[in-house]
Design a protein around this nucleic acid. Structure first.
Length: 803
DNA sequence: GACCAGTGTTCATGT
DNA sequence: AACACTGGTC
């Protein structure tokens, strides 16, 4: 195997000097970068240099004097993408990228609302609920309304509310057609009231509030429309209805500001959370886009990988139409591996990854992708046992860890004691004698007076009430103690006075949690020093509050009486408030082993936008990928296919596809058939490391057994080209051994055959899945349908074959 | 009210 | 298999 030299073939050198901005850019890219200042739609295929086009355009616009840093807004979906854009831009031009309006939709909305909190009807220090906070807040509402929690599941209601907000619908805008919906709307309303009382907003609220303010306040709207002459939107295919409407507030179609929308309909993988690919077509029509520029030249992957991607996505019907091409040769074939179990799959892939590493590939250039997070565990444990460094993205992220959330809750209470979500999270953690009964009384009192829990403590007398008083006293005294301290000192103080640190020091499993709390202090330190707690969180550039802006129609309320923006930076929030916002908006990677050369594990969704030299796509099985929940509707399968397309196009040099016959799920073994996507890939680009198999008890297994019975065995199949070379035959050994074992058992227990039916006196009819062992050890795995999958000792169980 | 053991539920994807 | 929730006991 040979790997082409890295970096010179695929990574064009970044244009460092400003004069060289347009060097090494292909004609398509050049057309996009230097497009006239009018609405543009760029169809950017995977690996076509999309980010480069975006950043180069921004740099070019500024360099040619068409726009000032303050006159443009660039919006992305992920923090990662926003950060990358800022970094690259900073490398191209000597500008203060932090002050620019470059960020995620939510980050920019947050910044906007921080500036106009009063106009938006928010308290100045409003805090942001993450999804789990939001769910628990909704749970409280449902309880308070004394509704059936089985019928109104907080998670589902949360989804309902978020969906409504993404449609820009307030409770009053929804016309319920049934009792269930009517109640959901009532919960939505009560939840909104509660959020308002507590001074918190959820993710969807950030967007909606920002949109409504622009919609309803003409002076503000016109100010921003004048200010932003250029708007650039990344991943346009992922925008939802509200985000598109939001964009139109900044740049209404009639005014013909230069909206530069970049997207790829083939990479639309967020329909499940409201993304509308249709926004691309709508945009083209509504903004009267005269020319759509397609970026189809791929600089990332070799031909076989690209052919696979192109052919796969060709099976989708609703496409704008686009075909990636490359100048690189065909490269290595796409390798396909069929494993006997998820364990074997993991084992194989880490061996292969090790081999790649030995051949000089950095571990961080190897990615293992899966459809859902649950699949990572087996792979993780295999990597762990083999002693291979790895890094898992997604799953439980840093700011989502229980101990970190506890600490953050205390910190939030310092800023805003009326945050009931935080109050409830820590009021009795560590335990301080405040039980469910007391909390209930407190909640009743709060509800009756329409005040927060914190404000209602005085109303609850009795022994529990005293403990409550002690708790609020603790919060208040901590607030006093931390006046004027640095962020680091504040957190250290809070960890001690709250008793959190003490609790974890005494807890026998608390070491790791203590470490994470230490990590929280580090994160805060890094936030203050490196990031200058700017970015999404705060950093309102001074110009934001300039007298000019106010004169132009901002009510004086924009600059609240009780604060003075920092003379130097214009920052208007305390470091603590800024850090809390940062924590909500950026869940943070799980920072373990950051910086180490480690194999990268992540879901396909989180791999979007990334690229690696070698990519393993695992668990390519029906029901898993495509996921079973998507199979019911046609659009669902198309989205899964796009997801697969995204996965394939992550690979530069090497692509591996693998699947397993059996897999542990929900603690049960499931039997899977290989994904339909295999039938949609070009045969010529694939190389099967294991012989083809159509499924259980058929295909290869049958062919193999036939060959075996002819006495020629595996050899004849190798000769027939079904198994490419003996070196790789080593891989499917478990299977051939299984087949051999099955033959033996079959001989012993006459007539039993894998894939045939069997009858058991107690469980009835079942399908024979596996035969193993001999004599006393002989055992069979049988799927009895409603009785489930069972392992049976053949020396005991009476199994009779059915024909 | 704290703590433990046993039971039930979830594993789609993210700001 | 891992975790959240429930009910019983001290």
């Amino acid at each position: 195997m040979h790997l082409p030299p890295q970096d010179d073939l695929f990574t064009a050198p970044p244009a460092v000097e400003s004069q060289g901005l347009l060097k090494n850019i292909n004609p398509e890219q050049l057309a996009a970068v230097t497009a006239p200042a009018e609405p543009m739609l760029i169809l950017a295929g995977a690996g076509s240099g999309k980010t480069r086009v975006l950043t180069t355009r921004i740099a070019w616009l500024m360099q040619t004097g068409q726009v000032s840093p303050g006159g443009l807004m660039a919006v992305t979906f992920t923090n990662k993408a926003a950060k990358e854009m800022q970094t690259r831009l900073g490398a191209m031009l000597p500008v203060n990228v932090r002050g620019m309006w470059i960020g995620t939709f939510h980050g920019l909305c947050n910044r906007f609302l921080r500036a106009h909190w009063k106009l938006a009807g928010l308290p100045q220090g409003f805090q942001i609920l993450d999804s789990s906070d939001s769910v628990s807040a909704i749970k409280r509402v449902i309880k308070a309304m004394k509704l059936d929690e089985e019928r109104y599941v907080a998670k589902q209601v949360s989804w309902f509310i978020a969906s409504a907000k993404e449609e820009a619908q307030r409770p009053g805008d929804i016309v319920p057609h049934d009792e269930q919906t009517r109640t959901m709307v009532a919960i939505y309303q009560a939840y909104e009231d509660q959020c308002k009382r507590e001074g918190v907003v959820d993710f969807a609220e950030l967007m909606l509030r920002c949109y409504e303010l622009l919609r309803d306040n003409k002076p503000v709207r016109e100010h921003y429309q004048q200010r932003f002459q250029h708007l650039l939107v990344d991943e346009f295919q992922d925008t939802n209805k509200l985000q598109y409407a939001w964009l139109k507030m900044f740049a209404p179609p009639g005014r013909q500001q230069a909206v530069f929308a970049v997207g790829d309909d083939d990479q639309s993988i967020y329909a499940f959370r409201g993304a509308r690919v249709g926004n691309m077509v709508d945009f083209e029509r509504e903004y009267r886009v005269s020319r759509v520029i397609k970026l189809e030249q791929n600089y990332r992957s070799f031909g076989n990988i690209l052919d696979s991607a192109n052919e796969l996505i060709g099976h989708n019907s609703k496409r704008l139409g686009k075909n990636l091409r490359t100048d690189a040769g065909p490269g290595e074939p796409v390798r396909v591996y069929e494993a006997a179990s998820d364990f074997a799959e993991a084992q194989w892939l880490i061996e292969e990854a090790q081999a790649l590493h030995r051949q000089g590939l950095a571990r961080k250039e190897i990615a293992v992708l899966y459809r859902s997070n649950a699949q990572s565990r087996v792979i993780e444990s295999a990597l762990f046992n083999a002693g291979i460094p790895y890094r898992v993205y997604g799953g439980l992220r840093f700011f989502e860890r229980a101990e970190v959330k506890h600490a953050l809750s205390y910190l939030r209470l310092l800023e805003n004691p009326n945050d009931d979500t935080s109050f409830l999270r820590v009021v009795n953690f560590p335990t301080r004698g405040i039980g469910a009964r007391t909390i209930e009384l407190l909640q009743d009192a709060a509800r009756a007076s329409g005040r927060s829990l914190y404000q209602s403590v005085g109303a609850v007398a009795g022994k529990g009430g005293n403990n409550l008083m002690a708790f609020t006293g603790l919060v208040d005294s901590t607030r006093n103690l931390t006046q004027g301290l640095t962020l680091r000192e504040i957190i250290e103080q809070v960890l001690e006075t709250s008793g959190l640190a003490e609790f974890y020091r005494n807890d026998k499993d608390g070491a790791e949690r203590l470490e994470n709390l230490g990590e929280l202090i580090n994160a805060a330190e890094a936030f203050v020093t490196q990031e200058g707690f700017g970015k999404d969180a705060v950093a309102l550039p001074v110009d934001e509050l300039s007298p000019g802006a106010i004169a132009e129609g901002f009510p004086a309320a924009v600059a609240p009486a009780n604060f003075t923006p920092d003379a130097e930076t214009g920052e208007i929030m305390s470091p603590l408030a800024a850090f809390l916002t940062h924590a909500s908006l950026e869940a943070g990677d799980n920072q373990a082993q950051a910086g180490q050369d480690a194999v990268q594990l992540m879901t396909v969704h989180s791999a979007k936008g990334l690229e690696f030299d070698a990519v393993f796509i695992t668990g390519l099985e029906e029901g898993l990928f495509p996921h079973e929940n998507s199979l019911t509707d046609h659009d669902g399968v198309e989205e899964e296919r796009r997801l697969m397309y995204v996965a394939i196009t992550r690979a530069r040099q090497r692509l591996y596809l693998c699947f397993s016959q059996t897999r542990m799920l929900h603690g049960q073994t499931r039997y899977n058939v290989k994904s339909r996507f295999f039938d949609e890939l070009p045969e010529g680009a694939l190389k099967w490391l294991t012989p083809r198999n159509q499924g259980f008890g058929s295909g290869f297994a049958k062919e193999y057994q036939d060959a075996w019975s002819r006495g020629s065995g595996l050899k004849s199949m190798v000769g027939a080209g079904r198994v490419e070379k003996p070196a790789y035959v080593a891989a499917p050994v478990p299977r051939s051994m299984k087949a051999a074992a099955a033959e033996k058992v079959a001989a012993e227990f006459g007539g039993l055959r894998v894939g045939k039916g069997v009858f058991h006196t107690k469980f009835g009819e079942g399908m024979l899945m596996t035969l193993e062992g001999t004599g006393q050890d002989a055992r069979a795995q049988v799927n009895f349908g409603r009785h489930g999958m069972k392992w049976l000792a053949l020396s005991v169980a009476k199994l009779t074959p059915i024909d």
